[in-house]
């Protein structure tokens, strides 16, 4: 046991040393001719949001003339790490991925760094002290999304308000940040209390099952705050089954603004949606070209997004792409 620990400690120390030593090496491994190949390790297809995100990346890669190698990790970190390793072996020009969880990426990203392959994070960030492991992070500001949801509730709540929270996948950046931003804002109003909070894994059936249990264990629920539309849609089903009216008896706030969610918002079953824009393909390809060419890029690029009320949803719905 002790031997194992010392070995592990040794490896950690070594990698820390090399990490310090190799800063500033700007060259990139280009694969053959002038075309850029991008290895993209997607989280999965867990929601409508994600599939819109995937489609945007695939379409924009084609439009930009970038050869895309795409893999689907089915929400598992080990699959994503495997995919990234295989991209390193294939010597792609740039690796992009949406980390399924925040931690545990240092080793594999260090491998990419040693192979001189730049890494772009999309949509979700990682939790690492070493910011040299990736060139830039393109994506939404989840804390800000949580704050926007909190702001709306603070502005619209009257009297004591009991909130139940449907969290995303435990450990995922959007789940942690959307919770944090929301709590930050509602702290200003002691009347608003989060009485129960549980993970619904970003899925409809998860949201429905958790909401069913909340409806039985909580005597009074005024607001549901779901970390994505799909869990909110599941919660709507559970609320209806309990003989209550979603959007009226129990108000619903969600994040994402996918088509099904917007439809429910327009129908008055959801009260407020904070947008999280999945169509970041174009920005990603522009960044990839710059990074491969060795140009400097800002280490944080935020996607443009807004919020929707019921009236705004009715107006925006016809032009919604996803």
């Amino acid at each position: 046991m002790l031997k194992k620990i010392t070995t592990v400690a040794g490896v950690v120390l070594l990698s820390a040393l090399t990490a310090c030593g190799s800063g500033g090496g700007g060259g990139t491994a280009s694969s053959g001719s002038g075309t850029i190949t991008m290895g993209f390790a997607q989280v999965g297809a867990e929601s409508g949001w994600r599939t819109a995100n995937t489609k945007s990346i695939q379409d924009e890669a084609k439009a930009a003339g970038i050869e895309l190698k795409f893999s689907d990790a089915q929400q598992k970190q080990e699959n994503q790490i495997k995919a990234i390793r295989s991209y390193i072996q294939q010597k792609v020009s740039v690796i992009a991925f949406s980390p399924v969880v925040e931690t545990g990426w240092d080793t594999v990203l260090l491998e990419a760094k040693r192979a001189n392959i730049p890494v772009i994070l999309t949509d979700r960030s990682i939790d690492s002290d070493d910011t040299s492991l990736y060139k830039t992070f393109l994506g939404s500001d989840f804390v800000e999304e949580g704050r926007r949801a909190g702001d709306w509730l603070v502005a619209n709540a009257s009297g004591p308000t009991n909130v139940v929270e449907l969290q995303g996948t435990t450990g995922a950046a959007p789940a942690i940040d959307r919770k944090k931003g929301f709590e930050e804002k509602i702290a200003s109003k002691p009347d608003i209390k989060v009485v129960a909070s549980q993970t619904g894994d970003f899925t409809r059936s998860g949201g429905k099952q958790v909401m069913e249990a909340f409806l039985k264990s909580q005597p009074k629920i005024d607001v549901v705050y779901a970390h994505n539309d799909d869990m909110g849609l599941g919660a709507i089903e559970a609320i209806k089954a309990a003989g209550k009216v979603p959007g009226k008896d129990i108000k619903i706030i969600t994040v994402d603004a996918v088509k099904d969610g917007m439809q429910a918002l327009a129908n008055g079953e959801i009260n407020f949606i904070v947008e999280c824009n999945p169509l970041l393909g174009k920005q990603l390809m522009e960044l990839a070209k710059k990074v491969v060419a060795g140009e400097e890029v800002p280490n944080r690029v935020v996607t443009e997004e807004g919020t929707f009320t019921q009236e705004q949803a009715k107006a925006a719905l016809p032009q919604r792409q996803y």
């Binding site: 297809a45 899925t203 409809r204 059936s205 429905k208």
Partner: peptide, 14 residues
């Protein structure tokens, strides 16, 4: 049953 419970088919998670 799983898909009908939420009126949707989720190939990834069902």
């Amino acid at each position: 049953m799983i898909s009908s419970n939420v009126s949707a088919a989720d190939a990834n998670n069902a």
